[in-house]
Design a protein around this nucleic acid. Structure first.
Length: 585
RNA sequence: GCCCCCGUAGCUCAGUGGAUAGAGCAUCGGUUUCCUAAACCGGGUGCGCAGGUUCGAGUCCUGCCGGGGGCGCCA
């Protein structure tokens, strides 16, 4: 494919440095050969590239590996570089080098994570609730995965444009507006403002199903809405406005970045839809089929093996959602200058989105050098492995779910420290409760479904948000006793005498790579896995290496430096996930 | 019928083609004159099945079995 190269999401890190150094030695043997540096169980890192290269050149792998070791200039980075097994190159870092790196990392506001050299404009489409409909647990994943990706992209130095593609247009609004008229504006506003959106929607639906006259009024109302009737638009704005206020409340409860300024609903694209149809038609991409105007992207077939249509304009001349999605792609690329568009949307929509992307490419609206990515996510399941529902069988409201999480966290805090005033517990309970829900979601591979389990996510042990928060809080406890601040850089180069100190140091230096891995896979779970390994390495250190009671002042200062850096990375990493890290638990 | 995703320990899940496949939970046992025991340490079982590619496969390819999802006017 021709076009500008795709951005390099990964940033400079320890492994990249080793790869670069070894790369010189590999190049001398065979230009462009990949050293394949990976973390290793047998050393700090291992280079696997010699095996593949030896095979290609018909040479003895061990001999080739030895030649590469000979050529590579690694003396300032590594204590040991040796050929092992069939032809691996095992790399053991020099403690003094690790120590200097840690010192530099601690002195860096960005914790060693370099901002990208060439920022890219990324539009992130996520959350997307529907007007006059409850935000339920089904919106959780899109909202917090999108939020974490936005925060991480922003930190990496990219230009992030958040877009909340709210469902605020289409035929259901005839019914909703008529229901609003029927119950009276004041009462409707009241119902919506207290967040009882489901009742409102269900009642509208019930009237629509039961009453022929209502149905007729709803149909006429859709026409009025489409034609821009001022009174109808006024009523519509009431529905939209109240709903967005409600969404904002949930977003603030969730602690995500989305605000009403990020709402770019379906209605926004409505004026552009005729242009989409005309544009496709000009390029000869539209085919009339069964009365509808369709595009037929290659490689998609229906159940009979016939080409699968993307319906752009329905047989009743209304526009399908494909038209809106195409208009959005066009708008994001042309007006916003998007180089990458992320769709944080459930996996079931994969085919629809792939078809939209394909048609957009055919129409030239997604030109080479731009990219649309479906950041697909699985569903939240109940313990019965079906869609997560409340005991009454309804979908679980997101707000209520979060409140329950906070209550459960608060109960755990109260049980642990009964003397603590409720007022003091409250902010901690909020961070722990919502953090537990978010971490449980983010730490699972986004493509998979997962089983929602209160006890597991709030068990406060294991791979959970609270465990990470606890590790962070323990560090702050040390610094409270030391009467100093972990945020202030001491400038100390840590001594890595103990295995636990060295292991912790190495994990700390892996932070840039963890962020790179998160962005290149669009998977916050990569960052979660890293932070868990950091928390684990820290607690091992904590158990084995007394900080304040260290044997001598140098060791004490060194351990304080390691602890401080651990706290900063935990706090920062959790921050990128949208999870708070209280100083005290 | 076609297409997509998934199948790893009793359970919930990690695992960028590399050496002996890892965590957490659960279970059993141990650790607190010491910075928060919400912690730490130890004990053992597994890549759905069959082929193939490769020096090397949980990972890539093909087929099968099992689970989930999608497949024309809802979004």
């Amino acid at each position: 494919m021709v076009g500008a190269p795709m951005p390099r999401w990964a940033m400079a890190d320890l492994r990249a440095l080793l790869e670069e150094r070894l790369g010189v030695a590999f190049d001398a043997v065979e230009p462009g050969a990949d050293p394949q540096v990976r973390p290793s169980d047998h050393a700090d890192f291992q280079a696997n590239g010699a095996l593949a290269l030896a095979r290609r050149l018909g040479r003895d792998p061990r001999q080739l590996a030895a030649e590469i070791v000979d050529r590579a200039e690694l003396a300032d980075l590594c204590r040991a570089v040796e050929v092992s097994g069939p032809g691996f190159v095992n790399l053991t870092l020099d403690d003094a080098f690790v120590s200097r790196q840690l010192q530099a990392m601690a002195g860096d506001q960005r914790l060693g994570v370099e901002a990208v050299e060439e920022p890219v404009t990324v539009v992130v489409d996520y959350s997307a609730p529907n007007v006059a409909k409850e935000m339920h647990v089904g919106h959780l994943r899109s909202t917090i995965i999108g939020d974490a990706l936005c925060r991480t992209l922003d930190f990496a130095g990219h230009k992030v444009i958040r877009e909340n593609h709210v469902g605020d247009w289409g035929t259901p609004f005839g019914m909703l507006i008529e229901h609003l008229v029927a119950v009276g504006e004041e009462e409707a506003v009241h119902e919506l403002s207290v967040g009882d959106l489901d009742t409102f929607y269900r009642q509208a639906r019930a009237s629509f199903d039961a009453d022929e006259a209502f149905r007729e009024r709803a149909r006429r109302r859709v026409v009025l809405l489409q034609s821009g009737d001022e009174e109808t638009l006024r009523l519509w704005r009431i529905l939209v406005g109240q709903s967005i206020r409600y969404f904002d409340a949930v977003y603030s409860q969730l602690g995500v970045l989305l605000t009403d300024a990020d709402v770019v609903g379906e209605s926004f694209y409505n004026p552009m839809l005729p242009g989409v149809v005309a544009g496709l038609d000009e390029r000869g991409l539209l085919v009339e089929s069964e009365g509808a105007l369709c595009a037929f992207p290659e490689g998609f077939a229906n159940r009979h093996g016939d080409p699968l249509p993307l319906i752009v304009q329905k047989s009743d001349e209304g526009f399908g959602y494909a038209a809106t999605d195409l208009a959005a792609i066009r708008d994001r690329v042309e007006r916003l200058g998007a180089r990458v568009i992320l769709y944080v949307v459930g996996a079931p929509q994969a085919q629809h989105l792939e078809m939209c992307f394909a048609v957009a490419r055919m129409a030239g609206w997604l030109p080479p050098g731009t990219e649309a990515v479906h950041v697909a996510h699985g569903s939240v399941l109940g313990s019965d492995r079906k869609m997560f529902r409340s005991r009454s069988g309804h979908s679980v409201k997101l707000g209520e779910l979060l409140e329950e999480a906070v209550l459960r966290a608060d109960a755990a805090l109260a049980a642990r420290d009964p003397g603590r005033p409720a007022q003091e517990r409250a902010p901690v309970a909020r961070a722990v409760g919502t953090g537990a829900v978010k971490y449980a979601d983010l730490s699972t591979d986004r493509g998979h479904d997962y089983v929602f389990d209160w006890d597991r996510m709030l068990a406060l042990e294991g791979d959970t948000g609270p465990y990470l928060q606890y590790a962070h809080a323990r560090i702050h406890a040390i610094f409270r006793r030391a009467e100093s601040d972990p945020g202030a850089d001491s400038g100390v180069a840590p001594v890595l005498a103990q295995p636990a100190e060295r292991a912790l140091g190495l994990v700390l230096l892996g932070y840039p790579e963890a962020i790179g891995a998160t962005l290149s896979s669009w998977s916050p779970s990569r960052l979660c896995a890293y932070l868990f390994s950091l928390a684990t390495a820290f607690t091992t250190f904590y158990e084995n290496c007394p900080v304040l009671q260290a044997p001598d002042p140098e060791t004490r200062a060194s351990r304080l430096a390691l602890a401080a850096l651990s706290a900063r990375v935990l706090d920062h990493g959790l921050g990128l996930l949208g999870i708070g890290a209280p100083d005290q638990m």
